[in-house]
């Protein structure tokens, strides 16, 4: 056991040392070149590896995924758009697409809204650093870890026995004596899973929005206050418009994370009980059904859904930077 460990860690150190050693040797040798050659060598040796990794690791595979999506499960028969008509025609996949849609609408909106409220409230409190840290902390935890934490909250026991799941116990304390098996209850389970996402991402939304609010020039709010704006009016007419682009960036960022979400579903339900989403279905098609055609088609759909969001996100960020 310890021998095994030391071999593994030895491999790790060996790989890092080998990697750095080879680079240093290459740099040393190439450092002797002079003139035009030295420039070309620098470009080749410094930029080459990154470009190669990108080509081999992303560009070529992505193109190949598109290609595979036009074929059957083991890529022996050309199907044309067959996998795509399957994706839009199959009722199981309808459920998947519907769930995904629910996720990307509800989770980001709730996350951003809660983050915004917290951003507005928390900065004035004594001990705000503690609150902020605790709310932000889930960001450090893996989705798998977060899922286990919440799976425990949702744990079901027969109502006649002592409860171990916090949610059931709270229901009982509140007088509801036979709460359901949460994770099995469709469609409620989808929302319970979304809570995990919200739990993880709210801290992110809060921190970003709080920074944006702090960046609003004091004179803008002051002028509005002198004009008689107060409380809610000030909030709706000054604060929100001033941080509009940040809100949108947060919203789209959480949306992109949600679209690619795989870990929570995999850990909590494995996609069962009507909770399947696009990213996990893609994984199941690829690695349990071994259908590379359908997996490819789902990956392409995911890609097509992400592109406009990222493009919009980038455009917002750019505009914001120009304004500054």
């Amino acid at each position: 056991m310890w021998g095994d460990t030391s071999i593994k860690l030895g491999n790790m150190f060996g790989a890092v040392a080998g990697f750095l050693g080879v680079l240093l040797l290459l740099f040393y040798l190439a450092g002797f070149a002079r003139g035009r050659l030295s420039r070309r060598l620098a470009i080749l040796l410094l930029l080459g590896p990154a470009v190669l990794l990108l080509l081999v690791g992303i560009v070529v595979p992505a193109v190949r995924t598109i290609y595979l999506s036009l074929f059957n499960e083991d890529s022996t028969k050309f199907l044309g758009g067959g996998n795509y008509t399957w994706a839009f025609g199959n009722s199981d996949i309808h459920q998947v697409l519907l769930n995904t849609l629910l996720w990307i609408v509800i989770a980001p909106i709730l996350t951003t809204a809660l983050g915004l409220v917290l951003a507005l409230l928390v900065d004035r409190l004594r001990g705000q650093a503690v609150y902020k840290s605790l709310i932000f902390m889930p960001m450090a935890i893996s989705f798998v870890g977060a899922s286990i934490i919440w799976k425990f909250v949702y744990a079901y026991r027969d109502p006649s026995q002592p409860q171990i799941g916090l949610l059931s116990q709270i229901c009982m304390w509140l007088g509801w004596h036979n709460p359901p098996n949460w994770i099995l209850s469709h469609p409620l389970n989808n929302f319970l899973l979304m809570i995990i996402m919200i739990w993880v991402q709210t801290g992110f939304a809060m921190v970003v929005l709080s920074a944006a609010i702090k960046a609003i020039p004091e004179d803008v709010t002051e002028a509005a206050v002198l004009d008689g704006a107060q409380g809610w009016r000030l909030f709706a007419n000054v604060t929100i418009p001033m941080i509009r682009s940040t809100i949108i960036v947060v919203l789209t960022t959480v949306m992109i994370t949600t679209l690619k979400l795989f870990d929570i579903i995999r850990t909590m339900t494995g996609g069962n009980f009507g909770t399947q989403v696009l990213a996990n279905e893609m994984y199941s098609q690829a690695f349990t059904e071994f259908n590379n055609g359908r997996a490819g088609a789902l990956a392409v759909l995911l890609f097509l859904a992400v592109v406009p969001l990222v493009a919009y996100n980038v455009a917002m960020l750019r505009r914001e930077r120009e304004v500054r």
Partner: peptide, 23 residues
Amino acid sequence: IFFVFFALQVVPLQMALVPLLQL
């Protein structure tokens, strides 16, 4: 090249998974 690097952030992991595993 810089723009391509930048743009490739859009590609989700899932797009590369199967072919890369085959490779």
